[in-house]
Simulated assay, not measured.
Amino acid sequence: MAVQAPIGMRSRSQNQRRKRIVQTAAALALRGGVEAMQMRAVAERAGVALGTLYRYFPSKMDLVVAVVTEELDLLETSIGRRPPTHETAAGRTVDVLMRATRGLMREPELADALVRSLILAEVQTELGTRITDLLWHVATRTPLSGEGAAAPDRDDRGYVLVGSLASIWIFELLENLKGRRDTDQVRARLETAAVPLLASFESADA
């Protein structure tokens, strides 16, 4: 009779398998765009059965969102290591949004997939909430993790205003993708919106 692996070991193995799938998909996307992220190709290169891949990611869009989420993880790590130093909440949040813009625009098809997942809600995703949470931490100068970290109150007025700025960024990212705005124009428009939206954070910093 086969002996089953302990639950903790199975969980680690599943997490490693999922991570391998996402990294494989990301590598394919970097070489050939989202079109290259064919489910069968991802499964073959990741060394998993196609059915196993579909258990983790029921659709290609779910897999794309997972790759974009990995990019967001890297952004959060980068911010933890090198937080924005601007004196104002508006300046700090725009700094982070422009880092995200530059990162995503290195692979425009992934950026397009992010926009579609947020605007069209093609799949269930926490990306919008995670982006707003990140901006709230930057605006309030609270750590993302570790000592001093705090969860935002998502009903708080300040959090709602930060969420509004995130929504503006998504629209500006879409305009950038369509070639109707360049990066400098996106920054200028985000700065114009961020100053009045986040004015309440400045009094809190004072």
Score class of each variant (00 low, 15 high):
residue 13 S to R: 12
residue 16 Q to C: 10
residue 16 Q to I: 15
residue 16 Q to S: 12
residue 17 R to G: 06
residue 18 R to Y: 05
residue 19 K to Q: 11
residue 20 R to F: 12
residue 20 R to H: 09
residue 25 A to V: 07
residue 27 A to V: 07
residue 27 A to T: 02
residue 29 A to R: 07
residue 30 L to E: 13
residue 31 R to Q: 13
residue 32 G to C: 07
residue 32 G to E: 02
residue 33 G to D: 08
residue 35 E to A: 14
residue 39 M to W: 10
residue 40 R to M: 07
residue 41 A to R: 12
residue 42 V to H: 11
residue 42 V to M: 06
residue 42 V to T: 02
residue 43 A to G: 05
residue 43 A to Y: 12
residue 45 R to G: 03
residue 45 R to I: 09
residue 45 R to P: 05
residue 46 A to F: 13
residue 46 A to S: 13
residue 46 A to Y: 14
residue 46 A to K: 02
residue 47 G to L: 10
residue 48 V to N: 03
residue 52 T to C: 03
residue 52 T to N: 00
residue 52 T to A: 03
residue 54 Y to I: 09
residue 54 Y to Q: 01
residue 54 Y to K: 03
residue 57 F to L: 00
residue 58 P to Q: 08
residue 58 P to M: 10
residue 58 P to E: 08
residue 59 S to G: 06
residue 60 K to Q: 13
residue 60 K to W: 03
residue 64 V to Q: 10
residue 65 V to P: 00
residue 65 V to Q: 01
residue 65 V to L: 07
residue 66 A to T: 00
residue 66 A to L: 03
residue 67 V to W: 01
residue 72 L to H: 12
residue 75 L to D: 06
residue 77 T to G: 08
residue 79 I to S: 02
residue 80 G to C: 07
residue 80 G to S: 10
residue 81 R to S: 10
residue 82 R to H: 11
residue 83 P to F: 09
residue 83 P to M: 12
residue 85 T to C: 11
residue 86 H to Y: 13
residue 86 H to L: 09
